[in-house]
Design a protein around this nucleic acid. Structure first.
Length: 285
DNA sequence: ACAGGATCCTGGGGGC
DNA sequence: TGCCCCCAGGATCCTG
């Protein structure tokens, strides 16, 4: 669900509430999340002060005074908010962290694709990211490296953008919006791109994400920020969810195809396949 | 190496 | 009102 702009918004919203807070204890519901919470971790983090709140890709990182790192992934439907203990409990709350001053950090996750885990130290966390090969932040991609990654693969651009090993934080919405911004068809393969086009895509991703952050991300159905507020970027979509509507740029009808197992939206007028590429049939609806 | 499908879940919307 | 089917901001594993 939440992609980089949504996760960034959650972190920014939570930061003033969480920094300096003391974690008293943590409790989980009886339904398991994507990754299990080790019971011994509860003791480790009890009484610890929150010293830092960060984001890496779609991961939320809570640093504690003893160097422990609480790492949260929101999955598809995760919501993270600090609220008073007195606030009534919602459905689907699967983790509650009791904080000082009668407050709680609550993790609500309808589909339970999210996770909350602990790493013993910053270096252990770094090791984890290295192990899973997490790619660079979209705002700090090296131009030549990016071109090299693209030019050495026959995979299509859509699946490249969704690959967290190539660039961290992009999901289905922003992949489609970035490809529209760069005027590139999602089915083009990486090694078909000229250096100039590859660079246009690199810049488009950063631009689209930056704009989305400024709008607090996109709220399609479940997403809310760390303050409970929705995002506004869904009002600025050019292609995502606009199947059958007219392109704001050229007036063509926005098409939807299946790519990398995901719904993929694009404008057949602005985003053309190079001659010789195989064609894809639009799915209506 | 890559594409595609299935899987983990719950809920909303449309069609009948 | 109910049922059935499809769809969904993610990630991972398996097959061909």
């Amino acid at each position: 669900m939440p992609e980089l702009p949504e996760v960034e918004t959650v972190v920014r919203d939570l930061r003033p509430h969480l920094l300096g807070s003391i974690i008293e204890t943590v409790q989980f519901s009886n339904k398991r999340l994507r990754k299990p919470w080790n019971r011994s971790w509860t003791k480790q983090i009890s009484g610890q002060k929150v010293t830092k709140l960060d984001r890496r890709g779609k991961w939320i990182l809570i640093s504690l005074q003893n160097d422990n790192q609480v790492v949260i992934h929101l999955g598809m439907t995760g919501q993270l908010q600090v609220m008073p203990v007195s606030q009534p409990h919602e459905d689907h709350v699967h983790m509650v962290m009791d904080l000082n001053a009668d407050r709680q950090l609550r993790f609500r996750d309808i589909r339970r694709f999210g996770s909350v885990v602990l790493y013993a130290s910053q270096s252990e966390l770094k090791q984890f990211f290295t192990q899973c090969g997490l790619g660079p932040e979209p705002f700090h991609i090296d131009r030549d490296r990016w071109f090299h990654r693209l030019s050495t693969t026959s995979r299509n651009l859509k699946s490249i953008l969704l690959d967290q090993k190539i660039v961290a934080g992009v999901g289905n919405i922003y992949a489609d919006e970035s490809l529209f911004q760069a005027k590139l068809h999602p089915a083009i393969s990486g090694n078909q791109l000229q250096k100039k086009s590859a660079d246009q895509l690199r810049k488009a991703v950063a631009l689209v994400l930056e704009r989305a952050i400024n709008q607090r991300g996109s709220s399609i159905r479940n997403y809310i920020g760390g303050s409970g507020l929705k995002g506004r970027f869904q009002d600025e979509f050019n292609v995502y969810g606009r199947t059958g509507q007219s392109c704001f740029r050229c007036g063509s009808t926005i098409a939807r195809i299946q790519l990398a197992g995901r719904s993929t939206h694009f404008c057949p007028g602005c985003q053309k396949l190079p001659i010789g590429s195989s064609d894809h049939n639009p799915v209506t609806g």
